[in-house]
Amino acid sequence: MRKVGILSQAWRRDKINELKEVAEKAGKIGYKEIWSGINANYIEGIKEISSIAMKYDMYFFVDINPDILKSFNASPSDLRIFKELNVGGLRADYGFSEDELIKMANNDLGLKIDLNASIFPVDRLDHLIKQVKDIENLKASHDFYPIKYTALSLESTISKSKEFKSRGIEVAAFVPTPRGEGRTTTETIRGKPPGKGASILFNTNYIDRIILGDPFPTDEELIEVYEAKDKTKLHVIVYPGITDEEKKIFSTFNDVRVKEYALALNILKENKITKRNIVRRFKGCVSVMNGRSDVVEVWIFKKDVEADDRFNVIGEVDPEDMDMLDYIGERISVQLIPKYME
């Protein structure tokens, strides 16, 4: 099941009210996770955020390394302080040996352990899993990279995530807001709207959890990312003359097939579309097949091809969404949204 979460900074005494406000909004929308950095000198901040997480049944996990454990008078074999603070999981950032990770994962407190998916040596993953009593205690989450040009490539994000996902371990990645350089796992999505970035990562089918990687997203951005877990949105610039029957394409398609020349979107629905506007097709061209009585079959082309009297051209993908044609895969739900020309 795909889930979305937010980044918090519970160590920031000066921003705790804003952080609580965002956490409350996210919980009401339906977000299921909160990730946070923590500081032993500001326990109250952890309590404030964890109480909101409990209120909305959100998985609250915090970033740790050996120095942070020491500051909390904790150790890999003694994690009670985090349970007392109502933390749900610990993200092992860096600095832990394999034996220490195994000790933490075998805790009897119900705490989950999030492995660092960006740097964990995957050739040791099977050995670690064999030593953990219950694989359900393991999750994985990538790093985020706030400095431009330092994040992972999309290909690297996929290959690293695949190692965990194929073993039944859920993987999380960060998407940034477009302001500033942004906290992102993947360089490909830096600067993009967060809903689009979330769609790109979810569409790989190797990312299960998205964390909105800036502490103060707008209300619209919170909603964008939440909706991305269920569908990818494509805006279509509609050409004049579209018929009521052709407008049936503006729906959500769960049957999406990737072809060499196009994306094929299908939905079972009565279709009385007749031949109209038979012209050449091009990258981003949105067409619908005529003469198909029981199915609305939309073809969005990725390459230029000649006209075919079986295809009515009704519009084109909005230039701002054109890049998404490269990231939509099989088994992805796609919603087509009209933009009418003035």
Score class of each variant (00 low, 15 high):
residue 293 S to K: 13
residue 24 E to Y: 11
residue 283 K to M: 07
residue 114 D to Y: 12
residue 335 Q to H: 13
residue 253 F to S: 05
residue 151 A to T: 08
residue 8 S to N: 14
residue 50 S to A: 13
residue 20 K to S: 12
residue 134 D to A: 09
residue 30 G to D: 08
residue 214 D to K: 08
residue 241 G to Q: 11
residue 65 N to M: 01
residue 117 A to M: 05
residue 15 K to N: 05
residue 258 V to R: 04
residue 64 I to S: 09
residue 33 E to L: 13
residue 92 A to Y: 02
residue 21 E to D: 15
residue 59 Y to L: 11
residue 97 S to D: 01
residue 194 P to D: 07
residue 152 L to W: 07
residue 179 R to W: 08
residue 44 E to W: 13
residue 80 R to F: 06
residue 137 N to E: 01
residue 257 R to V: 13
residue 26 A to D: 05
residue 292 R to K: 11
residue 3 K to N: 14
residue 233 K to F: 15
residue 49 I to E: 04
residue 273 I to R: 10
residue 152 L to Y: 08
residue 341 M to S: 13
residue 310 R to G: 05
residue 341 M to E: 14
residue 224 E to Q: 12
residue 318 D to P: 00
residue 124 R to H: 13
residue 211 I to R: 06
residue 197 G to I: 02
residue 59 Y to C: 04
residue 49 I to H: 03
residue 83 K to P: 03
residue 63 D to E: 14
residue 72 F to G: 10
residue 80 R to N: 15
residue 74 A to T: 10
residue 248 K to P: 09
residue 329 G to P: 07
residue 71 S to Q: 09
residue 237 I to C: 07
residue 182 G to Q: 05
residue 273 I to V: 15
residue 144 F to N: 05
residue 143 D to Q: 06
residue 146 P to G: 03
residue 123 D to S: 10
residue 230 D to K: 13
residue 3 K to I: 06
residue 155 E to W: 08
residue 176 P to Y: 03
residue 312 N to E: 01
residue 188 T to R: 15
residue 109 L to K: 06
residue 274 T to K: 15
residue 174 F to W: 04
residue 314 I to P: 02
residue 247 K to F: 07
residue 34 I to P: 02
residue 127 H to K: 12
residue 170 E to V: 00
residue 259 K to H: 14
residue 194 P to W: 08
residue 276 R to A: 11
residue 31 Y to C: 02
residue 281 R to H: 04
residue 117 A to N: 03
residue 339 K to C: 05
residue 327 Y to P: 05
residue 317 V to Q: 04
residue 306 E to N: 13
residue 329 G to F: 03
residue 150 T to R: 08
residue 72 F to Q: 11
residue 248 K to M: 13
residue 200 I to W: 00
residue 24 E to G: 00
residue 124 R to E: 11
residue 302 K to G: 06
residue 135 I to S: 14
residue 274 T to D: 12
residue 56 Y to S: 07
residue 140 A to G: 05
residue 74 A to L: 11
residue 309 D to S: 12
residue 187 E to M: 11
residue 5 G to A: 12
residue 139 K to Q: 07
residue 307 A to G: 01
residue 72 F to M: 12
residue 285 C to G: 14
residue 44 E to D: 15
residue 88 G to W: 12
residue 107 N to Q: 08
residue 39 N to A: 15
residue 102 I to C: 02
residue 121 P to S: 05
residue 252 T to D: 07
residue 207 I to T: 05
residue 189 I to Q: 04
residue 158 I to H: 04
